[in-house]
Design a binder for these strands. Structure first.
Lengths: 339, 339
DNA sequence: CTGAAAGCGCTTACAG
DNA sequence: CTGAAAGCGCTTACAG
């Protein structure tokens, strides 16, 4: 005999009472509660999660799907560490667990997610790296599983999301370039279909427009996320008829490659090419000249994500807001010498 | 009515038969099996995981505890991504899931683990960043939960582990320095208590000894994992009476800071100070002059870890080896211009 | 090959 | 305040 039944037998009371005592229900007398709690402690009792889940229909855990692609991972590990920490800090308050689901490189994204959705292992799911059209969102909506996303998407309806304020970053950067006299301003966007690429490009175009600069499609460069992409990018920049004098890069890591290639060409970031990066990943903090970039509170983003998903989960003892939480996380500029 | 009962009713057969058909048991006739499978597909049936777990006493999932400390995370994100991928590739073959448990910065390591252990959510657990004395190992042994670790420890008894071959790295590096004429060879070790620090230092001492070089404690530098630690280290190196001409660094990321400070001092890696790093994290791939370092197959390490943990899990249909898998993952040198 | 039934460990109306 | 009992959705000896 194990679990609750063991305690009940030990104390000569019913399992119902034990359960009520353990769960802090009001109906139990203080004396029996104390007895039960003491026995639980003494016998090292721990509730069986599966049995609770089955009886309650709730798991008190949230899944966070995370891609393991080398490409997707590159500029995002620090990012996710910080976000996870923020998510946990809120979930823990409500007794929810965070379980991260690393999607293997060769596993299909949708199938991978479906597996967890149908088995009912989670009360809610957090998705990252949303695509412009993201079938995972439809899957979750169809399954009726609460979810929130880190990143906007055009798929789906009324779900909560948190995203970085790409618009503000693009505007701030273009303004800064413009004020420094630049008129040929290039931008890089992700070469994969991730949604923030389009958002970033649109914001960049709009910022140019506000300064009366015509949009030149040859100044938009789709790149990978790694250093080598930056290295190659430099030659591409200078291969076009009227090369840019400034560049706004979405993946700060490629700055390392840009710096390197510029050095080989005996050009200097900030002097010969103005550069502004997106996020101040630790990777780029030691570049010389220092890279101008933006900084976001990953912890805050995580906290917001946690609140967003909790607000969708019925068993969460909080008021469910009418409209799902949707928020652009602010980024503040950290001026460097690169642009 | 839901789940298996719904299918049973729909088909006019018993739930037992449905269950057997779904689980591919031999006793079911081909015709009923097909009927059940078709109905399951049509109705979008998916087994309730909690109910299965309760009935079977097994969850078919493995937890991987991971620290979120900024410090611990620094040089390890790429590392874990690769390892996770390897773990999954093997676990998937046996229908096991990998769930990553990110430990919040402020959560106590042991309490965090205990929570998952007692609730019986996992059939097995993988631990990383083992400490020299690691109470988590005792916790798992006491709980009787199968586990494997990434990294050796002095705690515990007969558990399987995979670790990097620090000994070979230290020896190869010291040999290389020695053959290049260096006699004042410094080493860095982690400033936190992580076990591989002592292992690395011991291997370094032994390698020196083989070349008849006396061990000099002033040449051992305990450092953090970030670039700034490397930056500061350089001044420490040159502050001692008879400064080293070569240094072996355990955290390759600090090479970035070392390079930077050397540049400021107008010294050049490889010429004025020979440097060998540990792992070829993408972060350091673009250093100039290129950093000599070592490379390991993260995927292989992950695969070994998965095999190690599976071999301890009773429900796994494999033969349980007599002795737990213990393995040093090989690293091969990638010669660069730094040393 | 299939059904009826017990059991996995918990929760919770329902009586008392 | 407490007990007896049903139920969560599945699996699996045990009969037939």
């Amino acid at each position: 005999m194990r679990g609750i039944a063991r305690l009940a037998k030990e104390l000569g009371i019913s399992t119902g009472t034990v359960s009520r005592a353990l769960n802090g229900r009001a109906e139990v007398s203080t004396s029996t509660r104390e007895l039960v709690l003491a026995a639980a402690k003494r016998l090292g009792y721990a509730p069986n999660q599966a049995a609770r889940t089955l009886a309650l229909g709730t798991t008190r855990s949230v899944g966070f799907m995370m891609d393991l692609d080398r490409e997707a991972a590159a500029s995002s590990e620090y990012f996710f560490m910080g976000v996870f920490d923020g998510v946990q800090s809120i979930l823990a308050e409500y007794g929810f667990d965070l379980l991260v689901l690393p999607r293997p490189t060769k596993a299909n994204s949708l199938e991978f997610l479906r597996r967890y959705v149908t088995r009912g292992v989670f009360d809610g799911m957090i998705l990252a790296a949303t695509q412009r059209i993201d079938p995972r969102i439809e899957l979750l909506e169809a399954a009726g599983l609460p979810f929130a996303t880190l990143g906007r998407s055009e798929s789906g309806g009324d779900y909560p999301w948190i995203d970085l304020d790409f618009e503000a970053v693009a505007k701030t950067a273009v303004d800064r370039f413009f004020n420094a006299g630049h008129r040929r301003i290039a931008v890089t966007i992700p070469s994969d279909g991730v949604n923030f690429g389009s958002i970033f490009e649109a914001a960049y175009r709009q910022a140019l427009e506000q300064h009366g600069i015509d949009f030149d499609p040859t100044l938009v460069f789709a790149t990978g996320r790694h250093e080598d992409a930056g290295y190659r990018l430099v030659d591409d920049l200078y291969a076009i008829p009227n090369p840019p004098t400034a560049i706004l890069i979405i993946f700060e890591t490629i700055a390392i490659g840009i710096y390197r290639r510029l050095a080989e060409l005996e050009r200097r970031p900030g002097r010969d090419l103005a550069i502004i990066g997106f996020r101040d990943e630790p990777t780029v903090r030691f570049l010389t000249p220092t890279l101008t970039c933006f900084s976001a509170s990953l912890h805050d983003i995580g906290e917001d994500l946690a609140r967003a998903i909790l607000s969708r989960i019925p068993t969460y003892e909080g008021s469910r807001p009418d409209t799902p939480l949707r928020k652009l996380a602010p980024l503040s500029i950290r001026p460097g010498d690169s642009g």
